[in-house]
């Protein structure tokens, strides 16, 4: 399970393929360089458990700790609002692919242009289509997948982790990104 092969095995992408992200510190260089990251949270966030909560809670925590604005897709924004987190914006995943290709786009909060995206909690195949658009046509952006399963169209992606290892790595990432800037 630790091999960095696409989770859906047919999803082979080409010469460029994501590096396996197994330790938060691997993000050090890219994180240091990034000025304007954006977290893209998919519609499955409320149904993916994490710790005592779910991936909505995790996103809020990471957003606050590492100062990463959130854009929620597919209606996930409702869960953020219900939890009193008013800073999440809402856009469609496919809209984001289009807008992110424009290097002058200021982003959903008007704080861009973004130079890194962190994605998670989308259908596997929708995350890869989004990441493919970014990898190929938004080359000013470093795409990082925070999903459990390997997304070859990112720059960094987890290599199909066991559930527990995934949780641990998410915690590590929270601490690392939250503490290192």
């Amino acid at each position: 399970m630790m091999r960095a092969t696409p989770w859906q095995t047919g999803e082979i992408c080409g010469p460029d393929a994501a590096k396996a992200l197994t330790k938060a510190a691997q993000l050090k260089r890219d994180w240091r360089k990034t000025k304007k990251p954006l977290m893209i949270v998919g519609s499955q966030a409320p149904s993916i458990k994490h710790g005592r909560g779910d991936m909505v809670d995790y996103s809020i925590e990471l957003s606050k700790a590492a100062k990463i604005p959130i854009v929620a897709t597919g209606g996930a924004v409702k869960a953020f609002i219900e939890r009193g987190f008013e800073d999440a914006k809402s856009m469609g995943a496919m809209e984001l692919v289009g807008y992110l290709q424009d290097p002058t786009w200021k982003g959903p909060h008007g704080k861009g242009p973004h130079d890194m995206i962190l994605t998670h909690s989308m259908q596997y195949y929708m995350e890869w289509t989004l990441l493919s658009g970014v990898m190929n046509f938004a080359r000013h952006i470093v795409p990082v997948s925070l999903s459990r399963f390997y997304q070859p169209h990112a720059t960094w992606s987890m290599p199909n982790l066991k559930e527990k290892n995934y949780r641990d790595l998410l915690k590590e990432i929270l601490e690392f990104l939250g503490g290192s800037k």
């Binding site: 496919m94 493919s132 190929n136 046509f137």
Partner: peptide, 10 residues
Amino acid sequence: TASYMPYCQV
């Protein structure tokens, strides 16, 4: 505008 998301790069 056409926004492409290639399956692969080859």
